[in-house]
Design a protein around this nucleic acid. Structure first.
Lengths: 143, 143
DNA sequence: TTATTAAAAGAGAATGATTCTCTAATAAGT
DNA sequence: ACTTATTAGAGAATCATTCTCTTTTAATAA
């Protein structure tokens, strides 16, 4: 078993969640999909090894993982939810004319923003997290 | 008729869209709701003066307005779409534990980001728009 | 190792926001 | 006012997601 899977087992355990094959399969699917998969994409991937996993189970597990902050939902403008297993600080690049969404990591930018808002703040609002959405065009093909 | 309504008529006309009472009512509803309403909130507001407007019509009009860049969809983490009639550059403040979403305008921040990315750019990505999502808590009550 | 039990998975119905289809009405130009 | 393409109305259809109820299973303890 990979180290990542061990880490995932650990995360489930720490949250008091049972370590089930279905949960591990979904976590593994999420980690192997770089491009913020939908529940359906996850199911498709999983059914190769877990042909009998129920649709409702997949949604339930995703909900549990989100509630326990093991994964995140990705904000979009349409009604199909997408998920993200990367919990390290990062932003998202959204393609203007496709569903492609990629990660963008930039600690220098995060520092810049933090400095800016430590001084300035926002009236009547306590900032907990700053997430930048870049809309634009990818100049390469999807990996 | 208010100046804003005149402007809205003008926008519809410029896009080659017919100026209908239903479209004006939806635009008016959007402008009177500061807090990024859902289709349902818009319908509720509208039915006072347009009791017979069809649900499908409201969705259709919202779609047409979005496609013509007269309004925008607001990105959220759940499956109920929300809309925004303000097209001037602004960011959003998201409440961590309610559906409240407010606008945040900060030209100095926009300049800072523009300067930062003019120099730095993002590999394999052409930035068209930068939208910041602030997650946190509001320290005042909703207006 | 087996027994116990609360948590989780399976199956399929239910929900609900949104979209679609088809017909009737109407805005805008002639 | 006349004509016509566009738009609105009505209600069925769709489809992602949630819910309910039953069966199974992971985790702990004997």
């Amino acid at each position: 078993m990979s180290t990542l899977m061990q880490e995932m087992k650990q995360k489930l355990f720490e949250k008091g969640l049972k370590v089930t094959p279905q949960r591990l399969a979904i976590l593994q699917a999420l980690m192997s999909h770089k491009n913020h998969p939908t529940a359906e994409m996850i199911m498709e991937y999983i059914r190769v090894n877990h042909p009998n996993i129920a649709t409702g189970t997949v949604y339930k597990i995703l909900e549990v993982l989100v509630d326990n902050q093991i994964i995140r939902k990705v904000q979009t403008e349409n009604d199909v939810m997408r998920y993200d297993a990367i919990m390290d600080k990062h932003h998202h690049l959204y393609c203007s004319d496709s569903a492609r969404i990629e990660d963008y990591v930039d600690p220098a930018l995060d520092d810049l923003l933090q400095t800016y808002f430590i001084n300035k703040g926002i009236p009547d609002f306590k900032i907990e997290d700053i997430q930048i959405h870049f809309n634009g065009r990818f100049l390469n093909v999807e990996k």
